[in-house]
Amino acid sequence: MFEAQLVEGKTFKAIIEAIKDLVVDCNLDCSEEEVAIQSMDSAHVSLVAVRLSASAFSNYRCDRPNSLGINTANMSKILKMLGKDDSITFKAEDESPDSLTMLFEGGKSTIADFELKLMDIETEQLGIPDTPYQCTIQMRADEFQRIVRDLQVLGDTCTISCGKEGVRFSVTGAIGNGNILVRSSDEDKDKVTINMEEPVELNFALRYLNFFTKATPLAENVVISMSPDVPVVVEYPIEEFGHVKFYLAPKIEE
């Protein structure tokens, strides 16, 4: 039996909204410790990794590990009916369940229940090495979203370079080019923290960075981690309960 209540149901809704443009079908991997999602986009360029620890839920019960295969668009349709202060209670049988039950309960006297059909999804699990990164940038998530959105009008590839003066986001395109420099700042409402061992410069597809910023409502700050010649990690922490992490392979010069 899997049964878990998420008091702030809107957190789960925000997770599904954050990943549904990248991931069509995915497994909710439920275990005693957590509910996790790992899935690549169809082009195998980026990967989404979600973790919600059991402590994020009340009444968490997972008797044995289970993979619940969902279609994110269909899950999103059901979550449209979630009230903004509703809790969600998830329920599924142990043995290859064919549906996931979700109860939406608000402060009012209304309880809504929905059943989402589940699918068998073959997944390719990738092992992500737990290695330290050369540069880690923490900045406001809405500021990162604005930068990515603004630079998209100039071209489709963004060079992110982290150096002594800060982090530079650069785009070169047919109509011209642009650079946005983000510097370390201690200001409370606009805090930027840059930890750098060695300067790093990598190229990324803005289209994917833009997909990642769909997770902006989940977190005040985003953490961007880079090392030479490896995928960037764009992490949206979910309080102390988990995260949504996006990995994106760099582009290389021909």
Binding site: A205, P231, K251
Partner: peptide, 14 residues
């Protein structure tokens, strides 16, 4: 223009 890498070139399957 730079070429897009595939993620599987970086992370091994488990």
């Amino acid at each position: 223009t730079p070429m897009q890498n595939n993620l599987k070139e970086f992370f091994a399957m488990v």
